[in-house]
Nucleic acid binder design. Structure first.
Lengths: 190, 190
DNA sequence: TGTATTTCTTAATGTACCTTAAGTGCAGTT
DNA sequence: AACTGCACTTAAGGTACATTAAGAAATACA
């Protein structure tokens, strides 16, 4: 267990002193999770923001008929949570599960708020994180509205080739908003 | 032309001194735009972040066949720009046009960066703005993946009743990702 | 005030994608 | 090694939505 990867992630946007680094890492809790562990379930309080140190996770939503929609995949060096419910202290509307054995660092809402007070530079860090998340989601909305299933699949492969290796086609299909059967047909046609 | 509405928007998240308020407003430029003015076009540099003081705007994307997808509507008290291209100095991938005669305040990327330096509290303000934008887009992705066209229409009416009054059904259809003909059928069935 | 343009609707036909079902192959468990 | 479950595929039939075309109604413009 080392903070190196996480600290490099942060250093891409803000510079911390040794003391600040020390304070920041003291606010984190480290967890190792076996494969197929549910980190968050719909309806539960979502109190933690998670940084993926190693492994892979998937956030998904289930509709009234039980159909799953994958909201995001999170591999090493990604941040993941049910952001709306985390920020607004609402019950979670999604599930987050490990796709393989994973290790994460977690920051609670209380400690994040404390961090903003103690080291205001983190306002900048999370601003940039949120900017990137926003523009990524917006691009996904545009693609969902304007591309065919086949085009969205190609785009996914280009954008996340490493994720496409790790996850099942069923999961990719649920990310694209199509059935596994139709993804199979799309793949055959290439 | 008054900054009152904008300053109230900001005061919801951060407190500014009189001097800070003065400095902030000095960075803005005010514009009055007639109906159907293109504020931004695909391919152009996107140098400004706009706050809608009055009126209504629409951001949309056109695909290779010329089909429009509405990315967002922005009415009074909303911020709008092609955020990805604004932040990364890329050519715009969307159009932004006024739906009616409108007035806006604009902040250039250079001045926004200056603002972060001069008044770091704005890091917090825009962090919160980006958080809200992110969670809104994420919810839209979830709805696009899991709801039928009819359900998305109902959700739109509930979420943005005031916008539904102002814009045409053609524009609502392009926001929902369906044709105007099908929206007409959906409405008839209610 | 009339004329042009665009919006909205209706309806017939078409298609992208879904549902169901059945079969194959593979990984996990005993 | 056999059993179990799950992922993936294939294919037939079904549905949500698109396309095209045409007319009516609203809006813009000269």
């Amino acid at each position: 267990m080392t903070h190196d990867l996480l600290l490099k992630n942060i250093a891409r946007h803000i510079q911390l002193t040794a003391a600040e680094t020390q304070h920041f890492t003291s606010l984190l809790s480290y967890k190792e999770l076996p494969k197929k562990t549910l980190l968050l379930q719909e309806g539960q309080p979502c109190k933690q923001l998670s940084y993926v140190h190693a492994g892979a996770l998937r956030a998904y939503h289930t509709d009234k008929e039980g159909k799953e929609s994958t909201i995001m995949f999170a591999v090493a060096d990604w941040w993941v949570t049910d952001m709306y419910c985390f920020l607004n202290a609402k019950p979670a509307m999604m599930y987050i599960e490990t796709l393989e054995s994973s290790s994460i660092f977690q920051l609670s809402k209380e400690r994040l708020d404390q961090l903003y007070t103690d080291i205001p530079k983190f306002e900048r860090f999370f601003r940039i994180l949120m900017q990137n998340a926003y523009t990524r989601e917006q691009l996904r909305v545009i693609e969902n509205l304007s591309l065919s299933a086949k085009e969205r699949y190609e785009s996914f492969l280009l954008k996340y080739p490493h994720i496409a290796q790790i996850v099942t086609q069923k999961q990719i299909a649920s990310y694209l908003g199509i059935t596994p059967e139709f993804l199979s047909a799309v793949r055959k046609a290439r």
